[in-house]
Design a protein around this nucleic acid. Sequence first.
RNA 1: CGGGGCGUAGCGCAGCCUGGUAGCGCGCCUGCCUUGGGCGCAGGAGGUCGGAGGUUCGAAUCCUCUCGCCCCGACCA
Length: 594
Amino acid sequence: MFQSGVRVHMRLTKAFIPTLKELPADAQVASHKLLVRAGFIRQLSAGIYSVLPLAQRSILTITEIVREEMNRIGAQEFYLPALNPREIWEESGRWSVMGDNMFRLKDRKGADLCLAMTHEEIFTVLARAEVRSYRQLPQTWYQIQTKFRDEPRPKSGLLRVRQFTMKDSYSFDLGKEGLDKSFEDHRQAYVKIFTRCGLKTVQVDAHSGAMGGSGSTEFMVRTDAGEDLIASCEACGYAANTEKARSKIETPDAYAAADGVQLPLEEFATPGVVTIEALQRQPYGVGAKRQLKTLVYMADGKPVIAIVRGDDSLNEAKLQTATGANEVRPAHAEEIPPLMGAKPGSLGGVGLGEKSASGAVRVFLDERLAGLSGMVTGANKDGFHLKNVSITRDLSHAKIVDLRSVVEGEGCPNCGKPLQVGKSLEVGHIFKLGTRYSASMGANILGEDGKETPIVMGSYGIGVERILAAAVELHNDADGIRWPMSIAPYHVAILPLQMQDADVRAAAEKLYAELTAAGVEALLDDRDERAGVKFKDADLIGLPLRIAVGKKGLAEGKVEWKPRTPGSQVELVAIADVLAKVKAAVAEGGGKIR
RNA sequence: CGGGGCGUAGCGCAGCCUGGUAGCGCGCCUGCCUUGGGCGCAGGAGGUCGGAGGUUCGAAUCCUCUCGCCCCGACCA
């Protein structure tokens, strides 16, 4: 990935833009279908794509935007090796941590190498070797480089691949305050980058995962093609992955017997009733909100009980967080009776106090249930349930934590307005690494006090192809892509509609030459094709402006102007006015006249 | 890694069950025609049916192994 250089115009008879009439069979998401159909990309292997000229132009434009905004915050561009020796990854401890996700190979001497997934290691090696004094800090270093990840399941075109371009940057600061500033600088830069690329993003707090460190924020684009579920609030800007999201907990209703009346626990027969649903029906008539849903999980091989309200669903990630386990899974059907004394459908947490105290089984209870009474749960005896359950009295051995999944429409935890829940795609991620790498790899500097201290680091990534694909996901219709002007492969398409007409040809050529000379990126469809073919391809490729040159309009000295935006109509424009109009539209859309 | 699906012409597919030597649409090439939303007609090129082995007189078709791709789940900086 190098500087974009001269941006040439192009005529379609010379261009390599292999558009397809038919859909590629294996494409599922819109961006994949359209990028293949419109001739932007071709698949080489699972999760490995060839970038064709149209896509390359957009990618160069995207990276140019990234460079501008990175440089603006004082970051300096590097270009580091993708091929890394094992040693530095051993130093950071990630040679083993990365497991099968990292591509590994041996050289002719048998030495271990890997293809870098990110570049904390090399940048830290550089800093360790060359940065000695606090006087040299802060530094922010970045590169735009190919990353390799052996994804277990590549999918969705460019959205989940094994080789991709990433802008990764790393900040080096003396202390926490410096890191905070570097982090905020990046946050601001990222907002600008994504906005300029035509993406609306929400920022969510995220787990730091295998990266380590004290905090991280993900930049997410809301789209069904994404893989993460995000809860967000339009009103106040709250946003969180559903693995962490909360909502305003509704106040206990009358059923909760908030007045403190506590009836004695009572067992009742419920033959054949093994679902929340069934217990709601007559003759029982127990509302789901009064039921306790009791689920048995294995956390790193040890049984744990999770209890949520009957109409709530357990969020496994939250349970995992609560247990502190590396892995949680639902218990197998045959693991449950020996533990609980009953089969699923008749389970409950009541009476597990002893087991809980002995550490044989841990019980977790969703916080929304705290303090309630008058609840109904399984009796741990097939065919029986318990009523009048009081959380405080009967489940005091349970640990109260956040376990439930947030649901669309629930109140925002900050402002109370309805939350939206939807799929989202991660396009950027910023991390406060702290001293995770500098400490393990010995990247120390001398402070003002003469003492040696590890450099405080941050790391920040942007997926370049994901920006491209996300833009397509956000901006398309039944006819094709609708590129934002700022990252479109060309600004304008010029379509001579009757190639057999010399006047039409001449007028289109003249316009093309004029726009090109003015620095506009224009694509001339000079193919000897029928008008319909040109319109279809133009819509599919999706350049933001379309100028059709036809006999009819030409007779009046006019051409047809149509932006590729929703709802826009064809407009007749005098040829003399076209250049000014194009320039204005390019500028307005954030494109660049060169 | 578990479950499912699919590999036949550049692309999308049929043929396979019930073995007899490969077909359709799109695209491509040539000519005529047409010319404002993927025109029409005629002629043509293009496939060792993913690979290997086996059964059979004969395999795209049946059997075994293998490679690849897609989807669901698990996993996931």
